[in-house]
Each structure stands twice: as C-alpha cells, then as structure tokens.
Design a protein around this nucleic acid. Sequence first.
DNA 1: CGGGTCGTTGACTCTCATCAACCCTCGTGG
DNA 2: CCACGAGGGTTGATGAGAGTCAACGACCCG
Lengths: 258, 258
Amino acid sequence: MSADSLPILAPMVRKLAARSPLGAEERQALLDLPCQLVNRKPGAYLVREGERFHHCIVLRTGFVHLGKTTSTGRRQILSIYLGGDIVDLQSCVLDNTTYAVQALTNVQAACIPHGALMAAAQAHSGIAMALWRETVVDNSIAREWIFNVGRRTARQRIAHLFCEIALRQEIAGLCAGPVYEMPMTQEQIGDATGLTTVHVNRTVQALRTASLIQTAGRWMTILDWQGLKAEADFRSDYLHPVEVSATKRASPAKRILA
Amino acid sequence: MSADSLPILAPMVRKLAARSPLGAEERQALLDLPCQLVNRKPGAYLVREGERFHHCIVLRTGFVHLGKTTSTGRRQILSIYLGGDIVDLQSCVLDNTTYAVQALTNVQAACIPHGALMAAAQAHSGIAMALWRETVVDNSIAREWIFNVGRRTARQRIAHLFCEIALRQEIAGLCAGPVYEMPMTQEQIGDATGLTTVHVNRTVQALRTASLIQTAGRWMTILDWQGLKAEADFRSDYLHPVEVSATKRASPAKRILA
DNA sequence: CGGGTCGTTGACTCTCATCAACCCTCGTGG
DNA sequence: CCACGAGGGTTGATGAGAGTCAACGACCCG
C-alpha cells in the first residue's frame, strides 16, 4: 500500500508546510523525528486530565476530541482534530494538562517525545515558527467556538459545527465527494455545542427537514452548502484555510465547499 | 516617577520571564525592541476586525478586550487583557485579523512592529519559545471560556469571570488589597458570558445578596473568595499562574486569593 | 440644566433542559 | 439461530432559566 511507504509523519509535514515556509532540511528534520505508533478505540483516552504526558500526538487516521468535565460531571468538548493534525502541541511548552484527549473513532496516532520536537524547534527557527503558527490557528478556532456557544442558537451552533468539520476534512484532502464523515454521536455534538442530546436530536431533524443535510450512520451529506453556511453564519476565515492536498495532487484540488 | 524610569517594555519582559527561562541577552533584546506608545479611551478600537495591522500591542495600563460580532450585530467578547499582557500576538504569524481589539478603560499601549519582534524570535530561540508559550496560555484560557459559556449557569459564568479577573490582577501584581478593578460594564459582562444585560444585572444582584461580592462603581470586593470559587467551579490551573511580582518585590508577594 | 451612559425593575415569552419512555440496530454468546 | 444487552437515536410532556420589551432611576460631565 502506498500509504505505508510514506514516512509516518509525512501528512503532518505537509500540513505544516502548507501554512509555513519550511526548507528541505527542516522538512527532513521533522520527518526524522522519533515516534511511536499507537492505536485507540472509540472512547479510549490518549491523555487524561491532569496527567503528565511527555509526548506530542500526531493523528494519522481517525478523529479525537479534547474535553473537560465539571465537578458535577457535565462534559464539554473543546476542540476536535482530524488526520494530520498535531493534537497536543500545548503539552510541549506547559507541563500540566488541563483537559483530556479522547478518541472519537478508531484512531491511529504517532507519539513524538517532547524533547525531540523541542530540540528540532530550537535547532530550526522555521520549525519553531511553524509550530507556533499552528498553535495560533488552534487559538483562532477555539475563539470561534466561544462565539458559537456564546451567541448562536442551537440550530446555528450545530450547523456551524457541521460546516467546520466538513470544510476541515475537505481542506485536509480527507474526503473524495460531497459526503463527509461525521465522527460524533448526537450526545457528543451536544457536548461540543453546549446543548443536550434531546435538543440536538430535534435540531438535527429540523436541519434534515429543511433539506440542508442528510445523514446516514456516521456519514453526512451536505445538500445545500450555501444554505447551511447562511444558517450558521459561517465564515471560514477563522480556520485560516490552506489547501493541503495541493502538493499531493497533480490536478488542482476539486473543492466542493467554498 | 519611578515607573517612567523603567524601560517601557519591562513589565512585558517580567511577565514572559516568569514563565520562560530567558537569558540576560534575550531580556535585553526584548527591552530594546522598537515601540511606539499609543493612548486610547474606553470603547476605542486598537484593531478592527479584518484590518491588517503590522504591530503587536503590549498593554502598559488599562484593560482591553478582543471581540467579534455576528452578522445580526450580536457581540461576543473572546478574551480580555490587562497591563503587561501581549494582546495581539497572533497577528505576528497570521496576516488576517478575525476579531477586533477594543479598549475597556483608558489604555496606554506600546506597539511593536511585527518585523522587529519576529527578528528577535528568530535570533533567540528562547524568545521564540517564550512567545509560543504565551500563545499556549492564551489558548488554555480561551478553552476555559468555551467551557464557561457552554456548560455553566449564568451565576457560575459570571462568578467565574470575576474570579479570573481578580486572580489575574493579583498574579500580575496589579492590585494592592482585596479590592479589584472590574473594568467591564454589565453589558460587557453579558457579552463575555453569552448573556443579556438584564440577566447579568439580576445575577450580579444575587451574588451580592449572597454576600459573595460587593461592588462600588468599577471596583469590586470579593467578600468570600472560597465561596465564589466554589460557586464558579473555578480551578486556577488553566491560567498556568506564575507570580510575576516575585522578581520585583523584596518580600514575598502577599497573595489574598488562593 | 440637559443628555448620555449605566444600572435596575416588571411583565411576558420562548428556547432549551429535564425526565421518562420506547425503538432500532448490531454484536455477542448460548 | 435466537436471546439478550448496550449504544444510539427518537418522542412526548413539563418546567425552569434566560431572553425580550419597555420603562425608569442614578450618576456623571459638559
């Protein structure tokens, strides 16, 4: 299989390079980072809240989320990551973890020791800048989530989440057609949007009857992208989108969402 | 006045150095950064949404917030900053601004050209790490805010905001006694917590009658820190708190909140 | 003295939470 | 092959928390 012949960290390097200029030497340094593959099943923890974990997690396949729980047991999902993303970048520079990382789907991830990554960042300023830049994009997404749960209706929040997940998959070159993987249960959608399962259910039904989306198991079709975007007040600029697949595909990427 | 004899950027350097190891040379490089002082009145913009701004903003005195507005005009405050904080660090590494920076109070700030700051970061890996680390702390705070608006009641949200503002002032060494500056109007508190002015008003009253806080104009006294913390489910670890004033004060800092 | 900003209050509405079932599908084991 | 249980989705009834609208009061400043 061609995927196996590629270096493990190639997708990560491609993603970083899409946003940041990296010299050949810097790319190689990243590809040469030591790492260890791990597999997780849905629901399994990669990092627990408060745990000290001395590795960065680079996702190869699947989806994970980052979440936190109140003392009374209410859960909030703070962000989600998909293939190629660096999940736990913050742990490199701060030692105490204030949230948990959990698999949403079956997941394969590479764990890079902090020391190795930090050494690479110290040796190559281009790498340091690239990692910093990823952190800033993460930040931008987190802020949009504040906005989402703070000032939008249930319908808008859910529509917005769907837009984000679809567009991020498309940008990362992870989906072929107009069908997107929706890796979350309705309960998890509620945890991400600050709503209850019941209300998520009714709202998703409303989006379906409005012919905006169509769902089949974990797969979702966006029937009316412009309509969904309009409902959600979705503006993609906060994702600071850059086509990752451009370096991979011979032909220009066929984007469906715009 | 002794404040004027200090280099303009000294508070920023002290704040960075509290969390990150910085050599003497690196500190000096930061202090030597070119900058330009600006003053703003409450409500004035420092950066507008979508504007390209080629300077980082380092706050000297006063409070600012970072905010965003829906197409229908609903505002959400995404984070607030106080004296010594670097406000617009993200703009160094990403060119398009997705939110506005506005003064909450009278503000004095120093603007550092991106180029100069980036050059310092490239030349000194310690500076690059320190800036990255600040971005990560920012990120951690943003995630706590998602949690706050997503999963807490009005009373908890507001109590949590009060805890954060008080503790951040105390950590930065900005307040002398048990009285804290509360730089936001009730409308702005609503914008930060995803609530309406009216509801904020009633909730603040409830906190007052519960003898948790006391307010007088822009000044707030926390009467029962443990009680307020408990109400808010406030855990300070997300701020990654480090005493800034320790390097400044001869005697150990007198912390009131813990 | 007027005008603006900010805080306060009351009455009413509506979104969303809560509680409690029930259904369907799928994987597992007897 | 069927029984069983678990997870996820669906439904209905009810209620609470927060929004909306509208007005008024307190205070500051020119």
